[in-house]
Write a protein that binds this DNA or RNA. Structure first.
Lengths: 238, 238
DNA sequence: GGTTTCATCTTGTATATACAAGTTGTTTTT
DNA sequence: AAAAACAACTTGTATATACAAGATGAAACC
């Protein structure tokens, strides 16, 4: 274990409430305990509780209503990170499967990397893996991911099948995605991509390159994504 | 004029600082006055000043560094709203022009509208307009926009050439975009779109449908966008 | 019965204060 | 000259308190 500095109280409140929302203890549409109730529970004052609730608001877990309370809402899908949806209805998670094509490996950054890297990043190597997501067993999204290999012991051997990359980073390494940028094109896929996604070569493909910054200096998550949007689309709440 | 309830002090601080950043009084990379300086300027306390600075952080105008100060940064491009960039370098604003194809008109909501509308929205009609954005005189982005016609006197006759839709809404009507969702596809354009964007029919086009919610109940901004991503891409900071 | 008033809950805004902790440049020490 | 200590700045976290204002249901009134 490491320094393990005491984390601030407001963060504990945020984490507790977030965990409870994710466990379903507080359901969508319900109200959280009032600020004064939370003050009593955590033996603190409203300024601190409001700091915690403000964080949950930014993350999209709640919306706040003057005179009413904190209403549990759908969390924003990871800060503007596009998620996958069916064209008609939403895709039930039982229909969505993820398989690892290239398991996590440590390697040098590619020389022709698609985002400029700073000195701090180049001092470390990176962890690389690729995934293919299927909806009803039909391949829809191919994803290549690169993460700066900074203080990520054991990450190589974690299972990434369950879309839980961000959860793993948060819960195992205390890493939070803070902000990022993404670039989007419509392209015609080359043979490799078209084969992976099992489509005709003439079909348009949505291509995206993403950089996600975290609360750790120089630890960024880069992805290159290819999506078949014939039957589905990418969706984004922010 | 209307009720005009006194706006809170923290909001005045936010607005003042934002205006000064946009005017260039504080340049990118510089530090804002310290919290204690702002306390003296506005004759208030740190809790209030921090509330203002927290708002600016959320809007992306500044990032804060413990022990250092509030560093002016590029503002997030309107809450995850995609902006247009050149593939190689950024597009200088002198190369970007916007023309109105269909000037703002009041009309009923289309019957087959691409987002579900709630009762409150259906009680009003909508304002509709279309724009075409060109980079170096080459058409790149075609945009159809619908806005709920709620308390927008004079909006019909405003000029929308300068990409300043959000600025007009904020400064003339006190409307802030809060959150939204967008759906993205790669498609092959039909004849209408391909002609507008002046491309071959077989070329892939990026298609996006967007809903932006504001701080005004039932006042939402809907857009349908078509982008030629052969020479440019859509970019998104969040 | 229907309306108004009121009490009581909620969150929003604000003041005043304190100490912890990161950053930076200066001073002192070695 | 290099290193350590210090001072003076910064933001981060936290307590205690107060009143304003929105939401809601009960009580009083007509």
């Amino acid at each position: 274990m490491k320094p393990d500095k005491v984390s601030p109280l407001y963060k504990k409140v945020t984490d507790d409430l977030r965990a409870q929302i994710e466990k379903g203890i507080y359901q969508k549409g319900e109200l959280l305990p009032s600020e004064n109730d939370l003050c009593k529970t955590y033996n603190t004052t409203r300024v601190t509780v409001r700091q915690a609730l403000s964080g949950l608001t930014n993350l999209g877990y709640i919306t706040r209503r003057h005179g009413k309370g904190s209403i549990v809402t759908e969390p924003k899908v990871g800060l503007g990170i596009l998620s996958l949806s069916g064209v008609t209805a939403g895709v039930g998670s039982q229909n969505l499967s993820t398989s690892i094509l290239q398991k996590q490996v440590k390697q040098d950054w590619p020389l022709d990397f698609f985002f400029p890297l700073n000195e701090g990043e180049l001092k470390h190597d990176c962890i690389y893996f690729t995934r293919l997501r299927r909806i009803n067993d039909i391949p829809v999204l191919y994803e290549e991911t690169y993460i700066s290999n900074i203080n990520l012991p054991g990450f190589i051997s974690k299972g990434l099948e369950n879309l839980s990359l961000f959860k793993i980073l948060r819960e195992s390494y205390n890493i939070e995605v803070k902000e990022g940028e993404q670039k989007i094109w419509a392209i015609l896929g080359d043979k490799t991509i078209s084969d992976l996604l099992d489509i005709k070569k003439s079909h348009p493909i949505l291509h995206m390159k993403r950089k996600l910054k975290t609360n750790i200096q120089d630890l960024n998550i880069y992805s290159s994504l290819y999506c078949n949007t014939e039957e589905h689309f990418l969706q984004d709440y922010f």
